[in-house]
Amino acid sequence: MEINDIIKLMEAVSENGLTRFTLEEGNLKLSIRKEKEVVTLSSGPVVERQVQAGEFVQTVQAAPAVTAAAAGAVEDISSDKIVASPLVGTFYNAASPDSDPFVKVGDPVKKGQVLGIIEAMKLMNEIECEYDGVVEAILAGNEDVVEYGQPLFRIR
């Protein structure tokens, strides 16, 4: 693969709004990822900026308080009724930006009820509840990128 082919792929990823792209061809493995740069001010809000394709990004370690909060959220999963992500993609809690969320904390749910949507490769995949019960916690935010097996909902 020539450098011009790689540049064309980077431009295509950027133009199509993709955040990740992986290509495996023979013994070549190419992975392109577009990240958000997050800047935390000590007394202010979190500021995000989209990083353009080909732009160098220096990774900064998160503040210990943020790391502890994220670790606490994972350890806080006490229920054995967890609905996990079946694939990698972008999680949406509603059918459209202007509609109500599928479920909220405290809502009763039935097996087979739609809890959210994961968009992967421009396909919308409904996430159905695997249990009857009540939504105890929603572990992913709207438009968060989720990984395979990541806990999304806790049902009691």
Rank of each mutant, 00 (worst) to 15 (best):
M1T: 14
M1S: 12
E2C: 03
I3R: 09
N4H: 11
N4Y: 12
D5Q: 15
K8H: 13
K8I: 03
L9V: 09
A12W: 07
V13Y: 02
S14H: 12
E15C: 00
E15P: 00
G17I: 02
T19Y: 06
F21C: 13
T22L: 06
T22R: 10
T22I: 07
L23Y: 09
E24D: 11
G26T: 04
G26P: 10
K29F: 09
L30R: 02
I32N: 03
K34P: 00
K36Y: 14
V39D: 08
V39F: 11
S42D: 14
S43M: 02
G44D: 10
V47T: 08
Q50Y: 02
V51L: 09
V51Y: 01
E55M: 01
E55G: 05
F56V: 05
F56W: 08
Q58Y: 07
T59F: 10
V60R: 06
V60H: 02
V60W: 01
Q61E: 14
Q61D: 13
Q61A: 15
Q61T: 15
A68T: 09
A68V: 10
A68N: 12
A69Y: 14
A70D: 11
A70F: 13
A71T: 14
V74M: 12
I77K: 10
D80I: 02
D80Y: 05
K81I: 00
K81D: 05
I82H: 06
I82S: 06
V83I: 15
S85W: 08
S85T: 11
V88K: 12
G89R: 08
F91A: 08
F91G: 00
Y92T: 01
A95F: 00
S96V: 10
P97D: 08
D98H: 11
D98R: 09
S99F: 06
S99M: 06
V103D: 01
K104G: 13
V105R: 04
V105G: 03
G106A: 04
G106N: 02
G106M: 04
D107I: 05
P108E: 08
V109I: 14
K110L: 05
K111V: 09
V114R: 05
V114H: 05
I117W: 03
A120V: 04
A120C: 11
M121D: 01
M121A: 03
L123M: 15
L123F: 13
L123I: 15
I127R: 02
E128A: 13
E128T: 10
E130N: 13
E130V: 14
Y131F: 15
Y131I: 08
V134H: 12
A137V: 03
I138G: 01
L139D: 01
L139V: 08
G141V: 01
G141E: 14
V145C: 02
V146G: 00
E147S: 12
Q150E: 11
F153I: 04
F153G: 05
F153Y: 15
I155M: 09
I155T: 04
